[in-house]
C-alpha cells in the first residue's frame, strides 16, 4: 500500500491547490471550537480531532446556488424573458472528509446524477460532483454520537471516496478507490509501505432490521410521535447537518428592475412552512407530523424507493441538536427488529 509521511501533507495540498480549491476541516474563527470545511491556504491548521458541524455535501449541493439568471427585454410590442444558465468550471478537492460523508455523496449521486431516467441528471450537481476529488480520513476513533457501525461497512466504507488515508505512525497509509485516487497515490509524495491498516473505530450500534416496517407500524400512533418530537424546536439543524438530506427550496431574487436569478437553497422538513400551502392548509402542521415524516423518509420511504437508508450514522443530528434529541432513542423506542 502507498504511504504519505505527515510532513508531505502540505505539499500534497499545495499540489491539489494548483487547479482546485482545497476544502479542509478548520476551526472557524469567532466560534467556539466549531469546525467547518473551509478553503485551505498554506499555513492554515487542519482540525481532525473534532467533527465538522456541517458535512461536505455543500460542495456538490451548496447551501445557496443560482440555477439560472433571467432578464426581461422588450421585443417589439412584447415583453420577453431570456434565461441563461451559469456554466460551472471550478474544481474542488476535499481533504479529511469522513467515510460517512463520502458514502452519502453516493446516495446524492443516485438522486441528482442518475441518467437512467429514475432521476434527473442535474446540471449543476453534475458539474460540481465531476470536479470534486474526495480524500477521506478513515476514523480510528469516534465519539458517543457516532453510529456508522450500524450500517454496512461502517467506518470502513469506501464509497464516494477517491483516496482514503489511514492514520499510522509518522503519516498515512493511502488506499486509492478511484482512478483519480490512483493518480494521486502515484505522486512522488507517496512511497510504498508494508505497514498494516490500523483498526478502525467501532461505534455504537442501533438495530436497523425491519426498521422501515416498525416505523410504519407506529405511523398512526400520533401520541408516540408527539412524545418523540417533544422539545424539538423545528430549527432544521438536523437537516442542514445531515450528509444525505437534500431537500431544497427555490426562490427568485431581482438584481435590478429587469434582471435577477432563480436560486436553490437548502430547506428542512422540520420547518412549519416547508409544507404550508397558500390556502393555509398544512398537511404536516405539528412537529410530531414532521418528525414522523423525517424519520419515515430516512428509514422507510427512501429504503423502499431507493434500496438504502437516507442516513450514514454520522451523528451530527445528535451532536448538534440544540434540544438534545437523539434519533437512536427513537429507533430503539420503535421496538426490536
Amino acid at each position: 500500500m502507498r504511504f504519505i509521511p505527515e510532513e508531505n501533507i502540505t505539499a500534497l495540498l499545495l499540489r491539489l491547490s494548483e487547479n482546485a480549491t482545497v476544502w479542509a476541516p478548520q476551526v472557524v474563527r469567532d466560534t467556539v471550537n466549531t469546525v467547518l470545511f473551509a478553503p485551505w491556504r498554506e499555513g492554515a491548521e487542519i482540525e481532525t480531532g473534532l467533527y465538522s458541524a456541517l458535512p461536505v455535501k455543500g460542495l456538490v449541493l451548496p447551501a445557496t446556488e443560482r440555477l439560472f439568471s433571467f432578464r426581461y427585454h422588450r421585443a417589439g410590442e412584447r415583453e420577453k424573458i431570456e434565461i441563461e444558465v451559469d456554466e460551472l468550471r471550478e474544481r474542488a478537492a476535499v481533504f479529511a472528509a469522513r467515510a460517512c460523508d463520502a458514502k452519502a455523496l453516493v446516495t446524492l449521486d443516485a438522486l441528482f446524477l442518475d441518467g437512467s431516467g429514475r432521476s434527473y441528471n442535474d446540471q449543476h450537481y453534475r458539474a460540481r460532483r465531476g470536479a470534486l476529488t474526495v480524500i477521506t480520513l478513515a476514523c480510528t476513533s469516534c465519539d458517543s454520537a457516532c453510529f456508522c457501525s450500524s450500517f454496512e461497512d461502517g467506518a470502513a466504507a469506501t464509497a464516494g471516496s477517491d483516496l482514503i488515508f489511514y492514520p499510522v505512525s509518522g503519516g498515512f497509509l493511502a488506499e486509492a478507490v478511484s482512478a483519480t485516487g490512483r493518480e494521486l497515490a502515484a505522486l512522488d509524495l507517496f512511497q510504498e509501505s508494508n505497514l498494516e491498516k490500523p483498526p478502525l473505530a467501532e461505534t455504537a450500534k442501533v438495530e436497523l432490521a425491519r426498521l422501515g416496517q416498525r416505523l410504519l407500524d407506529k405511523f398512526d400512533d400520533i401520541d408516540f410521535w408527539r412524545r418523540t418530537a417533544e422539545g424539538c424546536l423545528s430549527c432544521g439543524y438536523c437537516s442542514y447537518a445531515c450528509p444525505a438530506c437534500h431537500c431544497f427550496n427555490i426562490f427568485d431574487e431581482m438584481e435590478s428592475d429587469r434582471a435577477g436569478g432563480r436560486y436553490r437553497c437548502w430547506d428542512a422538513c422540520m420547518f412549519y412552512a416547508y409544507t404550508l400551502e397558500s390556502s393555509g392548509h398544512n398537511p404536516r402542521p405539528e412537529a410530531a407530523h414532521r418528525y414522523r415524516n423525517r424519520l419515515a423518509h430516512k428509514f422507510s420511504y427512501f429504503p423502499l424507493n431507493r434500496g438504502e437508508f437516507l442516513c450514514t450514522g454520522c451523528g451530527r443530528c445528535i451532536r448538534g441538536c440544540p434540544a438534545g434529541r437523539d434519533v437512536r432513542d427513537v429507533i430503539k423506542a420503535l421496538g426490536a427488529g
Binding site: 438522486l111 441528482f112 432521476s119 434527473y120 442535474d122 437534500h246 431537500c247 431544497f248 427550496n249 427555490i250 430547506d267 422538513c269 416547508y274 409544507t275 404550508l276 400551502e277 398537511p283 415524516n293 423518509h297 420511504y301
Partner: peptide, 15 residues
C-alpha cells in the same frame, strides 16, 4: 395537490 418547488421528486415536500 401539495406544495411543490421542484416538480421532479427531489425537493421533498410533496410526498
Amino acid at each position: 395537490e401539495r406544495k411543490m418547488k421542484c416538480g421532479i421528486g427531489l425537493c421533498g415536500r410533496c410526498n
